[in-house]
Simulated scan of single mutants.
Amino acid sequence: MVDGPVVAVRGEAYREVAPELARFRVTASARDRDRETTLTRLAERAAAVRALLDSADVDRRETGEVQVYPLTKRSGERVVAYQGRVTTTVTVTDFTALGELMLRLADQDQIEVAGPWWSLRPDSPVYRQARHAAITDALVRAREYAEALGARVTALVELADSGLNPQPMMTRAAFTMGGAVEDGRPELDLDPQPQSVQASVEARFTISEPVLN
């Protein structure tokens, strides 16, 4: 049981920082009337993607989906062609050559590139900084309320985490096509989207007896 008056406050903090990760998807496709030809082309294009990624500075790549299926006429089950797709998700932390890498991949035959999507690392220190700032804000508010009453904060009674909410401002990058580079290839300039992180806490403090006039 708490003796004396108590002030309850909510502390909040907001941080807007540069992203730490960029992810994009690369999908290799193949289609032909012959199933073996479709599979061969799909394997060759997927291998070309892997070779290009092997030569690039990527932090992680994951094969997320492989699809091979027949295409039939609407009126029946007669197969008219075979379709195949292999999707790879790529994660990078060095953004300097990201646009060039995406263009090089998109320049391959029957390759689709989507993204990038920006984010923070799950263990980013930004989250810890936001939590600490939210606690500081709660304490400042409590002291301000106590001061308005002619009192002072004496002890912490309870502290509860209201949540830490990362809020990317946008899920996709805004990009512009620049002029041609020296070798004649187009240049893709990417603008990483800032990431916002919001933390909040609820706290209860005991205060000294107010001086009420």
Rank of each mutant, 00 (worst) to 15 (best):
Q167S: 05
E158H: 00
A142F: 04
D161N: 09
M169E: 09
G178C: 01
A173S: 05
L149C: 05
Q167M: 05
G163W: 10
A160K: 07
M170D: 15
L139C: 04
G163R: 11
E144S: 14
L159T: 00
A174P: 05
V153Q: 11
M169R: 05
D161G: 01
T171M: 11
A142H: 03
E147G: 11
R143V: 10
G178V: 04
R172G: 08
A174M: 10
P168H: 01
R143W: 02
S162F: 08
S162N: 15
P166F: 02
Y145G: 00
V157R: 03
A146S: 08
A155P: 02
E182P: 07
Y145P: 02
R172W: 00
V140A: 05
A151K: 03
R143G: 08
G163Q: 12
A138M: 11
M177Y: 07
T154P: 01
G178A: 08
M177V: 11
M177C: 05
R152K: 13
P166R: 06
L159F: 04
R141G: 01
R172A: 14
L149G: 00
A160Q: 15
N165G: 05
V140W: 04
G179K: 08
G163P: 02
M177P: 01
L164R: 01
N165W: 14
A138D: 06
E147C: 04
A180W: 04
A142Q: 06
D161S: 11
A174E: 06
M170Q: 11
G150L: 04
E147Y: 09
E144Y: 08
A173E: 10
G179R: 09
L159M: 14
A146F: 05
T176E: 06
E158P: 01
G150C: 02
T154D: 14
A148S: 15
G150D: 08
V181K: 12
T176V: 15
E144F: 10
D161V: 10
V140S: 04
T171Q: 12
L156A: 12
D161H: 13
R152H: 15
G178F: 01
R141T: 15
E147K: 13
L164P: 00
R141L: 14
G179Q: 04
M170L: 08
E182D: 12
A173P: 04
N165P: 03
N165F: 07
T171D: 11
M170S: 09
R141W: 08
A138W: 07
A138F: 07
L164E: 10
V153N: 03
R152C: 08
A148L: 13
V181G: 14
N165D: 12
R141Q: 15
L156E: 15
L164A: 07
A138Y: 06
A180F: 01
A148T: 14
A180M: 12
P168A: 07
L156P: 04
E144N: 11
